[in-house]
Design a protein around this nucleic acid. Structure first.
Length: 464
RNA sequence: GUCCCCAUCGUCUAGAGGCCCAGGACAUCACCCUUUCACGGUGAAGACACGGGUUCGAAUCCCGUUGGGGACGCCA
């Protein structure tokens, strides 16, 4: 049997981090089994679905590197099929028309609340003769759900979960305007799409009981269910827009790499022994539902940062330089991009995100004369400038321009002047980068080149 | 409120009755490396929510308490 999974977001907002993880798990599971991963846009809520959200979700998945098979399914387009199935259930006596008005429902809800009981539709049209139908009320179609016994889910993550059927009421399958409800369309679509494994958020666990009843009414084969725990914010509460429920594009903008986010999301709720750094290829090989934890987890930027730093150091200098150039607004300037690439070795060990990388790299693309920050200015006092002036004399000579030789020359200069290397290096750093922290300064000199280096030193000497 | 789920260091987790006075990773702290800051290395501190069982033996099984979360729509 070929494994078929799906990711089924509703396009009412961006692709948030929880959805991204759900998509990742479905994708990994399908790829692990050599199966099929499908995308279904659940756009049946016409009020809230937007093209913008659809684009954001698709862009997010693409950025994350989660490719799906076959064409994208749009749920709304399948409304006729959903209605058809409801009619079939009607014909088989598995469903019935219900003429209860929204007002009556509201009364029911109010009464239930007052009695401290959960809202349950009372089934008043369940066995009533349709001839009693009031004039002018468009009916909904409700499932004739079992009233006794219990419904049991065999969940691949949560284990066996059961609920008494009296807890469940006759849910609406088709609204009075003939459009399907979520519960109904999900089941019909999952069945028609041949989904074998429904992997989704924990928040759907209790929905599953009702969906199971639809499968049973239609006599359809059940898919396997796996409900993965939700991701919470740093404070343990449900992820809200205030803290962390950002779209994946926000993570991209913050400078996270897709491979780092994949690795982080994978480890959030899934484990493989003590392994932490897990490549995507390795993840496909290892991923299974047994490794999924059952407790909700909290989103931790510190760990994401650490992982991102790891993948950053692993990344190609040239592509990193391209991204940094884009962020600094100098993309396309071959000379600067080349300079950034040359400086990347020292730069990338010092950054956790692309944003930080770009910030740290800015001094490489700045035009002379640099404006040193306050701390750097403190290293450019009169005595320091004397040192710089002396060093400049050495550098102006026949000096080979690579980091190692430059360092040797600086060390020799410091020694002959009876000062520490740091007393030479810090003023130099201040002059060349305008800051007090930077990649190794002799590496910086090599990357900047002789002319630019001497120019920046002259600027500092003149500025003092 | 009703129903359902969950519970190991601050965080993510390993742990499927003895290998655990609980292992790893991130974060924190200290030291080393060092021209700055990082990276890297070494080390420290830090958890089985609580109470009952079951068992020769429980982080692991059962029950309860507490705490967290989710679902209760003609939203998805």
């Amino acid at each position: 049997m070929t494994v078929v999974t799906r990711f089924a977001p509703s396009p009412t907002g961006f692709l948030h981090i929880g959805g991204a993880r759900t998509a990742l798990f479905n994708w990994l599971f399908a790829r692990h089994h050599g199966g099929v991963f499908r995308l279904r846009i659940e756009d049946t809520d016409r009020q809230r679905s937007t093209q913008q959200a659809i684009d954001a979700i698709i862009d997010g998945l693409k950025w994350l590197g989660l490719d799906w098979d076959d064409e994208t399914i749009f749920q709304f387009a399948r409304a006729p099929r959903h209605a058809e199935v409801a009619m079939e259930m009607l014909k088989q006596g598995k469903a019935y028309y219900c003429y209860t008005t929204p007002e009556e429902l509201e009364q029911m809800r109010a009464a239930a609340r007052a009695a401290g009981k959960p809202m349950r539709y009372d089934g008043r049209w369940r066995d009533r003769d349709p001839k009693d139908a009031p004039q002018g009320v468009k009916p909904v179609v409700r499932l004739k759900a079992p009233t006794a016994g219990e419904t049991v889910v065999q969940d691949k993550v949560q284990g066996e979960v059961r609920v008494a059927n009296e807890q469940l009421d006759d849910m609406v399958l088709l609204r009075s305007d003939g459009t399907p409800t979520y519960m109904h369309s999900v089941v019909v679509d999952d069945h028609d799409m041949g989904i074998t494994h429904v992997i989704r958020g924990d928040d759907h666990l209790t929905n599953t009981f009702r969906q199971l009843q639809i499968y049973q009414a239609m006599g359809w084969e059940l898919p396997a269910f796996a409900h993965i725990p939700l991701i919470h914010g740093p404070d343990g509460a449900k992820l809200s827009k205030r803290h962390g429920a950002l779209g994946v594009e926000a993570y991209r903008d913050m400078g996270y790499l897709p491979e780092a986010l994949r690795n982080y999301l994978l480890r959030l709720g899934w484990g493989h022994g003590d392994d932490e750094i897990i490549s995507t290829a390795q993840a496909i090989e290892w991923f299974d539902l047994d490794g999924v934890g059952r407790a909700p987890s909290r989103f931790d930027f510190a760990k994401l940062d650490n992982l991102n730093g790891h993948y950053l150091r692993q990344a190609e200098d040239a592509s990193l330089a391209g991204e940094v150039a884009r962020r600094l607004g100098v993309a396309g300037d071959a000379q600067l991009e080349q300079r950034l690439a040359a400086g990347m070795a020292g730069l990338k060990a010092r950054a956790k995100t692309l944003k930080e990388l770009a910030d740290n790299a800015r001094f490489y693309i700045l035009k002379r004369p640099l404006v040193p920050d306050d701390k750097a200015r403190a290293h450019l006092a009169a005595t320091a400038l004397q040192v710089l002036k002396g060093l400049r004399g050495v550098l102006a000579g026949p000096q080979s321009w690579n980091g190692t030789d430059l360092e040797a020359a600086a060390r020799e200069f410091a020694e002959s002047n009876g000062i520490k290397l740091g007393q030479v290096a810090q003023p130099l750093r201040a002059a060349l980068t305008g800051a007090t922290t930077s990649p190794p300064i002799f590496e910086v000199m090599q990357v900047l080149g002789r002319e630019e280096t001497l120019g920046r030193i002259d600027d500092a000497l003149a500025g003092g």
